[in-house]
Computed example of a mutant assay.
Amino acid sequence: MSTLAVSARTPVFRRPTMPTARCLHHMMHSQLTIRGELVAATGLSQPTVTRAVTSLVGAGLIHERPDLVRATGPGRPRIPLEMTPTPWLHIGAAIGADGGTLGVFDTRGRVLRETTFPPYTDTTGTADTAEHLIAGIHRLLSRLAVPVADIGVAVTTPDTGFLGGRLTEEFGCPVTVGDLTASLAAAELLTTGATTDPILIIYLDRGLTLAVADDDGVTAHPVDTDLGPEILARRLIDAGFLPDQKPRGFTGLLPGETPQTPQLRSLLDDRARDLGETVARLTRDTGAGTVVLAGPGFTVDPGGYRELALAVNPNVDKRVAIRIVPDAATLARAVARTVALDRLLSDPVAVHAELIDRNQL
């Protein structure tokens, strides 16, 4: 293993700004393109795009396809460009209180291999989580001969540096450790065009955290609220729906009986209204134009969506687009992909140079 010292780092989480990154980001979403299309898509000058393309070709990320040139009239033929088969891999993990996802991604952001992951809780501890991650990464990389460029991990619990340091020690590559809510906001930011209205992510897991994304990047912080799983569990215990024990997360809190009793339905509707009022307040306070509600706190009770909507809709501007992400697997994959590709979408040529320094290319 290389002896190159590589430190764990926090993610950048903003739209690509370097010309190479902006061109590569556009090419991730298209099969073939030409330099003129990159000029139009990125707003960069023709010489700047030409230099960026040359750098990306040199880094092995894209190549020319002269075999696909079509005659369009007089003048120099326009040679199509496409991304190369991935020259290296990116590892990404998203870990919440109810479990998460660990995946291997190519340079286009496509998932190559994926597995689920145990919850990241106070009882498992950061050290145990790191060892589970290490074992999982080794399993996913079995019989894959392509080098690993970097590892990204998004967690709901603040990391002291041990997690990133342990992964760096094991794999000898750069490690990004970021906040899960911020990672989800970054995923949303990278799939939207420039906007003057912030994007608000409200994530409810152990507690409620929010992240605001705009053209300047992503900021995230927790919100002081009683909407977490412990308060819901206490209300269910007091009402006789749960035994007197402390659950760790939202999963398993609600009984599986159908239909729900009027008493339980009333308790859950009260909670949904409280949640809706909080969403409406945070939307107004941040001036968001897009709001994404995610995490098990929003999906634990699908029957409460109507009450949540009744609390939100009259109290926010009708132009605000609000949606819930009900599929935990889709959410976890988006987070893992974003934190895994953070370095690539910041400075793709530097990723290539670092791999050369490690004698991986």
Rank of each mutant, 00 (worst) to 15 (best):
E188P: 04
H26F: 14
S142Q: 15
D197Q: 11
T129E: 03
V223N: 01
T48R: 07
D215L: 13
P119Y: 03
L267Q: 04
D347I: 02
A185Q: 08
E169L: 12
R284H: 04
P11Y: 07
L200A: 02
T10Y: 12
R337F: 09
T258N: 15
R306Y: 11
W88T: 05
A145L: 11
V292T: 11
P77R: 08
G58K: 06
L210M: 13
L112F: 07
L38H: 10
R248H: 14
D205I: 01
G249K: 09
G217V: 01
H25G: 07
S183L: 08
E188T: 13
Q46C: 07
Y120T: 01
I95R: 14
L112A: 07
A194M: 14
A127G: 01
G165E: 11
M27D: 11
G252Q: 09
G96N: 08
L253R: 08
A328S: 15
T10K: 13
V148W: 00
A52V: 07
I95L: 15
G73N: 00
F298Q: 04
M18L: 15
R271P: 03
A211K: 04
I324V: 12
A41Q: 13
T33M: 12
L56G: 00
V53T: 09
I79L: 10
D67C: 02
V218W: 06
A5Y: 15
H132M: 12
T126A: 05
V212T: 14
L275R: 07
I322G: 00
A5K: 15
W88C: 05
G256S: 15
D205G: 07
V316W: 00
T176M: 09
L141I: 00
